[in-house]
Design a protein around this nucleic acid. Structure first.
Lengths: 187, 187
DNA sequence: CGGAGCATGTAACGCGTTACATGATTCC
DNA sequence: GGAATCATGTAACGCGTTACATGCTCCG
């Protein structure tokens, strides 16, 4: 019953990292670390947490007893939860199948003016640049920690940074191509 | 009623490209062109086609009359469909929010042996290499056409190829890092 | 004759997202 | 006092995926 999927493992993993956490805090930490490849909403976190508790994969170490500190539920992994998490970590990851609306629009680019396509690319560039700044900041922060703590965060973050750089170059090159084609048509 | 979302536009766009097509053929063409950033299943295509017809965005130009050629329905865009498609093409594309299971597993990499992580990366590399070959073949095919026909296909395909190349390099570099860390711990 | 490919659909399910709803606490 | 943040949840919806179900035709 209730959610099953991958959210479960994302939450389990995050809980393992934090040792102890509330649902709220789990989300905050995801926002500052996994946000670019994994997000959860409160609407999935709380039911999943309940589910996980029912499955004995996590335990509530602090109850929301109406009048204690901040009416928050704090959870911790059980050894069974630890085992399930490790099992999942060892399974091969399923290939992602993305739906990229920008690429879909570009693919149909000949149905509109090249200017429209160029505008889409420019807007995308803007997004990418903003993201790049954030990622670079994150990277700087992580670099201050010792390697054993930040190793895997840095590897995943590096993935993001490299892909942004690649996208940025692709945007620039594509815009150039479109502009040159456009000017040829005008002549 | 029935599907709305983006599938609608993907199908509308593909129909515009093909001028006339059956649902089956639409899917075949997507498989050989947009598959790496957009896919549709028969279970979505047929209901969407019905929906689109009800909305007068497409018309059935050949009916499946039990005993005509192959009992297939052939559709074509209406001018209204053309308009709706162009409207959508001009709207800014929504940012994709991906869920990348591989990255999630890597992020939690310190909970398992580095070998497990390396295996994930190697498996991913294998996938990427297989894809790269297909994309490169597609690119060769497209290069034979004249530029105006293949321009946008090449741009989107190029996006895929570049990102694969980037991922491949990232995998290699990450494996190297993990192996060096691993050997340090053994000492 | 048999298998691959053509062709169309339905039903159920999974599962994430959005909107809705509430209330305490901290800080300015 | 009021905004921002902490904190938790429910209900409905959207919408894609999987499994199921069927039948023709072309080719060897």
């Amino acid at each position: 019953m209730a959610k099953s999927g991958k959210s479960q493992f994302a939450i389990l993993g995050m809980l393992a990292l934090l040792k102890e956490s509330t649902g709220y805090d789990l989300k905050k930490h995801m926002e500052s670390s996994t946000q670019y490849f994994w997000k959860e909403t409160f609407s999935s976190i709380y039911p999943v947490l309940e589910d996980l508790e029912n499955q004995k994969l996590i335990v509530r170490v602090k109850e929301a007893t109406k009048k204690n500190d901040r009416k928050s539920n704090t959870y911790r992994l059980t050894s069974e939860g630890q085992r399930i998490l490790e099992d999942w970590l060892m399974q091969p990851a399923e290939a992602i199948q993305l739906r990229n609306e920008l690429l879909l629009k570009l693919f149909f680019g000949n149905m509109v003016s090249p200017d429209v396509v160029i505008q889409h690319l420019e807007a995308y560039k803007k997004e990418l640049k903003a993201k790049l700044i954030i990622y670079q900041e994150n990277k700087n922060e992580l670099s201050k920690l010792n390697a054993s703590e930040s190793l895997y965060s840095l590897i995943t973050l590096d993935h993001g940074i490299r892909h942004i750089a690649t996208s940025l170059r692709w945007c620039d090159d594509s815009v150039k191509i479109l502009k040159s084609v456009d000017s040829q048509n005008i002549e």
